[in-house]
Design a protein around this nucleic acid. Structure first.
Length: 839
RNA sequence: GCCCCUGUGGCGGAAUGGUAGACGCGCUCGACUCAAAAUCGAGUUCCUAACCGGAGUGUCCGUUCGAGUCGGACCAGGGGCACCA
C-alpha cells in the first residue's frame, strides 16, 4: 500500500465510509459541547464553482477541528433555490424553473460530496420545496398578525416595452436588458416588513458581535445610519391646495442661516400638486426616466425646477426662500424635502452654483474668517457659527442645540433621531419565489391564508413565453374564496424576496419538524451559529435581514435568540481572467484556447480579448469548473490549495501551478507516513520543540481562521520530519502530522492513519495536545542595530540581562566599524531580541 | 456620488512598533537516470563583477532610538449602495 497516494480510490472509499457510519450526522440531544458551523448556502446555479469550494473547505476545517476537540458539531448544507436565474433559464431554454433548479441541485450535491465535506446531509433542505417555504409562509403570517407587515406604494424599474418589472441588474445604462427600451420608475403597491421598528436594536446588537469583522459592523452601522438633528417646517408664503408647509430634516441645524433654497422630491405632494402645469409635469416626467438605484440617482446630473413657490424662514418671517423640485431628493428618505445650505454641503453647493443661488458662509474655523468666501467646494467641517445672528461665535454643536431649543419652544420644529434604514420591501413580481400567503377580498381587505391551508404552493402549469408574472395571468390559481367571508377573492400574486428564504434557513437546519417551522428548544440547543462563513458581498443585506428576522421571531415569542450569528467570517472571492468575443459577449475559460500570447475562441477561431482578473461570476462567465480538477488531483489537493497562500479574507486567484504544488504536498505527507523508518533510541530535542510549536501554531491558526498560516506551519513541520533521523520521536511526529493535516486533507489523513495501524477513524481521533515548556529554545538570535539599522546578528543564551547584551553588542566588529570611535549616546535593549545603539 | 476594504520580490503571501521577504509557486544550477517523469540538494528583492556597502513594503509628509505596522494627505484597485445571490 505504499507508492503514490491514489485519491481516486481513497476519496471514494472514505466518503462511503463516513456516509455508511453517519459520522457527521449531528445529534441534538448529545451531552457534548455543541458547535454550529455554517457556510452561506449556495444558489443552485448549475455546477459548483471555486468560490463554493473555498467557502465550504474553510467551514469544513473548522467543523472537523471542533469535532476532533470533542464537540458535537452541526454542519449542514442546503440550497437557496428560488431566484431569477431559474426564470431566465425558463425563458431561454423552455424548461420549467423547478425542473431546472432540481436538476442543478442534483449535480451540485454530487459535486460537493466529491469534496468529502463533513456535512450532515440528513438535514439538507431546499427553499423552493413546499416543505420549506410553507413554514416560511406560516412565519410571514405570524409577522403579519404581529403588525410587522404592511403594504405601501413603492417604485420599481419598469420596462415599458416588455411591460415587466426589472431587477437592478437587468437595467443596463438605463435600458431594459432584453427590450433595450429606456427604463421608467413606476409605483406599485407592495409588501414591506417593518425592519425600521428594530433599527435601535439592530444597531445596539452590533456591539455584542465581537466575533464579527469590524468592517462588517461598521458597514451595518452606516447602513442603519442613526443621526440626530432637527425636524422642522417651512411655512409656504402662499399655501397650495395640498398643504401650507414643507417638513424637512437636517443633521446640521447650526447652518440654518445658511439656507438658500428648499427642494422637494418629484414625488412630493407639492410637486404632484403642480402637475397640472405643463412645464412642471414635463420636469417630473423627466425625473422618472432612469433606474431606481442610489448610485444612479446620486451620480446623475443634478436637475432642479423652480416652482415659483416661496417659503418663509422659520427664524425670520421676512426672509423668503425659493422652492425647487429636484431629482436628487428621494421621497423614501426623511420627509422627501430638504433645505439647501450650499456653503456647507457639497451637493447643495453644486445645485446652487448651477441655479445661481446665494452661497453664504455660516460656519468658519474662527470668527476672524467669517467673511472668507466659500471657494470651489463646500466647507463641510465643524467650526464656529458666523453670519448667523444669535448663533454667532458658538461652536457647531452648541449652535445646533440652541436652534433645536428655540424650535421646540416656538413650536416650529423638534429635535429628533433620523434613520437611513428603510423598511424592507419583500414583494417581487415573479413566479419563482415563495408565494405571499395573502388573499385580497373586496370586503375584508388583505386576509392571511388560514394555517390549515398552507402551504400555498406554486402552480406547475405556467409558461414564460410572454414577459411578466405567470402567477398574475394564471387562469385559475389566483381565484379563491375569501377565508373570512367566503366571497370571491384573489390571491396575492407577488412572491417573497429570496432574502426572506435565507433569513431563517439556519434555524430550520437546527430543527426541522414536519408540522411547524422549527422546535424552539431544539433550535436553541444549537443557535447561535458559532461560526458563519460567506462572501463579504453579503456584509450588509443578507446579514442585516437575517438579524432582523431572528429578532422579529424573538419578539413574537418563537425563539429566545436575538443574534443568529455569534462568529462571522467574510472570505475573499476567487478570481480569474475574463475573456470577451469580438461582439463583446463574455466567454468561459473552456471556450477559449491559448495560442502563444493570444487567446482564441475554440468554436470560431476568432481572437479573444483578454479582460481583467475579476471575481468569478456567472455573468462574466469566468468560472473554473472544479470537477475536472477534482478528478485529476483528488479532493485533498483541491482543499489544500484553497487554504494555502492567500489569507482567507483576501481574494484568491485560481492557478494551475498552485494546485500542482498542493498535490505534491499530499504525496509528501503520504511518503512520510508510509516510508519505513527504522526505530532507534536517538532523540533530537530541537525536533521535538518544532513539533510542539507546530501543534500550538496550527490550532491557533485554525481558530483564528488563518488557514494559510496553518498550511505554512505544516510545510515547515514536513520539511523538518523529512530531515530528521529515524527515531521514536520521528515516528511520533508523523502520527501527529497526520492528525494536524486531517481537517484539511481528510482522505489522505484517514488513509495514512489506517496505514500507521491506528484504530478507528482520524475523524474521531482527539486533536493532539502540546507542552509549552517544550517549545522554548535556550539560544536566541539578537539583532544588533546602530541608529536603527541592522549591522549584525549574534547568538546569545536566552535570558541574557541588559548589561550583558549591551556588552556583547558593543564587542561586535561590525558595530565598532559603524561607530568609528564615537561614543554611544543611548542603548536600547529588547531582551532576547534586539540591541539598538544610538550614536 | 456615498459607505467599507486592500496595496510588500517574477507570483501568492509572512512579519505582538524591534533581523522585511517565513512558507509556497516559478525560475537557475546540481544529484539520481541511458533519457525523462518523479524525487532530493543548493541558490533566488534590487543596485554593485564580487566584497564592503547602498536602496527597498503604492506616493508624499509626520511621530519614534526604531515604522510594512501608528497619524495625516494623496494615488490605484476591489466590494456594497436596498429587485443578482
Amino acid at each position: 500500500m505504499t507508492g503514490r497516494f491514489d485519491p481516486s480510490q481513497a476519496d471514494r472509499r472514505w466518503q462511503a465510509r463516513w456516509e455508511d457510519e453517519r459520522t457527521f450526522e449531528a445529534n441534538s440531544t448529545s451531552s457534548k459541547p455543541k458547535t454550529y458551523v455554517l457556510e452561506m448556502f449556495p444558489y443552485p446555479s448549475g455546477r459548483i464553482h471555486m468560490g463554493h469550494v473555498r467557502n465550504y473547505t474553510m467551514g469544513d476545517v473548522i467543523a472537523r477541528y471542533r469535532r476532533m476537540q470533542g464537540h458535537e458539531v452541526l454542519h449542514p448544507m442546503g440550497w437557496d433555490a428560488f431566484g431569477m436565474p431559474a426564470e431566465n433559464a425558463a425563458m431561454e431554454r423552455k424548461v420549467h424553473p423547478g425542473q431546472w433548479t432540481w436538476a442543478n441541485i442534483a449535480t451540485m450535491r454530487r459535486q460537493l460530496k466529491q469534496l468529502g465535506f463533513a456535512l450532515d446531509w440528513s438535514r439538507e433542505l431546499a427553499t423552493c420545496d413546499p416543505s420549506y417555504y410553507g413554514h416560511e409562509q406560516a412565519l410571514f403570517i405570524d409577522l403579519f398578525n404581529a403588525g410587522l407587515v404592511y403594504r405601501k406604494e413603492s417604485e420599481v424599474n419598469w420596462d415599458p416595452v416588455d411591460m415587466t418589472v426589472l431587477a437592478n441588474e437587468q437595467v443596463i445604462d438605463g435600458k431594459g436588458w432584453r427590450s433595450g427600451a429606456p427604463v421608467e420608475r413606476r409605483k406599485l403597491s407592495q409588501w414591506f416588513l417593518k425592519i425600521t421598528d428594530f433599527a435601535e436594536h439592530l444597531l445596539e446588537g452590533l456591539a455584542t458581535l465581537d466575533h464579527w469583522p469590524d468592517k462588517v459592523r461598521l458597514m451595518q452601522e452606516n447602513w442603519i445610519g442613526k443621526s440626530r438633528g432637527l425636524k422642522f417646517r417651512f411655512r409656504l408664503v402662499e399655501p397650495t391646495a395640498e398643504t401650507s408647509e414643507i417638513e424637512v430634516f437636517t443633521t446640521r441645524p447650526d447652518t440654518i442661516f445658511g439656507a438658500s433654497f428648499v427642494a422637494v422630491s418629484p414625488e412630493h405632494p407639492i410637486a404632484l400638486g403642480l402637475a397640472a402645469r405643463p412645464d412642471a409635469a414635463e420636469f417630473i416626467r423627466r425625473c422618472k426616466a432612469g433606474g431606481t438605484t442610489a448610485a444612479e440617482l446620486e451620480t446623475q446630473e443634478k436637475l432642479g425646477f423652480d416652482t415659483g413657490l416661496e417659503v418663509a424662514h422659520p427664524l425670520d418671517p421676512d426672509w423668503r426662500l425659493p422652492v425647487y423640485i429636484a431629482n436628487f431628493v428621494l421621497m423614501d428618505y426623511g420627509s422627501g424635502a430638504i433645505f439647501g445650505v450650499p456653503g456647507h454641503d457639497q451637493r447643495d453647493f453644486e445645485f446652487a452654483t448651477k441655479y445661481k443661488l446665494p452661497i453664504p458662509r455660516v460656519v468658519a474655523p474662527s470668527v476672524a474668517e467669517a467673511s472668507a468666501p466659500i471657494g470651489s467646494e463646500a466647507d463641510v467641517g465643524h467650526g464656529i457659527a458666523v453670519n448667523s445672528r444669535f448663533l454667532d461665535g458658538m461652536i457647531t454643536e452648541a449652535a445646533a442645540a440652541e436652534v433645536i431649543r428655540r424650535a421646540e419652544s416656538a413650536g416650529w420644529g423638534e429635535g429628533t433621531v433620523a434613520w437611513r434604514l428603510r423598511d424592507w420591501g419583500v414583494s417581487r413580481q415573479r413566479y419563482w419565489g415563495t408565494p405571499i400567503p395573502i388573499i385580497h377580498c373586496q370586503g375584508c381587505g388583505p386576509v392571511p391564508v388560514p394555517s390549515g391551508r398552507l402551504p400555498v404552493t406554486l402552480p406547475e402549469d405556467v409558461s414564460f413565453d410572454v414577459p411578466g408574472n405567470p402567477l398574475d395571468r394564471h387562469p385559475t390559481w389566483k381565484h379563491v374564496g375569501c377565508p373570512s367571508c367566503g366571497a370571491a377573492a384573489v390571491r396575492e400574486t407577488d412572491t417573497l424576496d429570496t432574502f426572506v428564504d435565507s433569513s431563517w434557513y439556519f434555524i430550520r437546519f437546527a430543527s426541522q419538524p414536519a408540522d411547524r417551522p422549527f422546535d424552539r428548544a431544539e433550535a436553541e440547543a444549537w443557535l447561535p451559529v458559532a461560526q458563519y462563513i460567506g462572501g463579504v458581498e453579503h456584509a450588509i443585506l443578507h446579514l442585516l435581514y437575517a438579524r432582523f428576522w431572528t429578532r422579529a421571531l424573538q419578539r413574537i415569542g418563537r425563539i429566545g435568540v436575538a443574534e443568529p450569528f455569534k462568529g462571522l467570517f467574510t472570505q475573499g472571492m476567487v478570481t480569474h481572467e475574463t475573456y470577451r468575443a469580438g461582439d463583446g459577449s463574455w466567454l468561459s475559460p473552456d471556450e477559449v484556447r491559448r495560442d502563444g500570447d493570444d487567446y482564441v475562441q475554440i468554436a470560431t477561431g476568432q481572437p479573444v480579448a483578454l479582460g481583467r482578473v475579476e471575481k468569478m461570476s456567472k455573468s462574466k462567465r469566468n468560472t473554473i469548473d472544479p470537477e475536472p480538477i477534482l478528478e485529476k488531483y483528488g479532493a485533498d489537493a483541491v482543499r489544500w490549495f484553497m487554504l494555502s497562500d492567500s489569507p482567507p479574507e483576501r481574494d484568491l486567484e485560481w492557478s494551475e501551478a498552485g494546485i500542482e504544488g498542493a498535490s505534491r504536498f499530499v504525496q509528501r505527507v503520504w511518503r512520510l507516513a508510509t516510508a519505513s523508518a527504522a526505530h532507534s533510541e536517538r532523540e533530537d530535542d530541537g525536533f521535538e520543540r518544532k513539533l510542539h510549536r507546530t501543534i500550538a501554531a496550527v490550532g491557533e491558526a485554525i481558530e483564528g481562521l488563518q488557514f494559510n498560516k496553518a498550511v505554512a506551519q505544516l510545510y515547515e513541520l514536513v520539511s523538518a520530519v523529512e530531515k530528521a533521523p529515524p527515531s521514536a520521536s520521528r515516528a511520533q511526529a508523523v502520527r501527529i502530522l497526520v492528525l494536524l493535516v486531517a481537517p484539511m486533507a481528510p482522505h489522505l489523513a484517514e488513509e495514512a492513519w489506517a496505514h500507521l495501524g491506528e484504530q478507528g477513524m482520524v475523524a474521531d481521533a482527539p486533536w493532539p495536545t502540546f507542552d509549552s515548556s517544550l517549545m522554548v529554545d535556550e539560544q536566541v538570535t539578537l539583532a544588533v542595530q546602530v541608529n536603527g539599522k541592522l549591522r549584525d546578528t549574534l547568538n546569545a543564551p536566552r535570558g541574557l540581562d541588559r548589561a550583558a547584551a549591551e556588552a556583547l553588542a558593543l564587542a561586535s566588529d561590525k558595530v565598532q566599524r559603524q561607530l568609528d570611535g564615537a561614543m554611544p549616546r543611548k542603548v536600547i535593549v529588547v531582551p532576547d531580541r534586539l540591541v539598538n545603539i544610538v550614536a
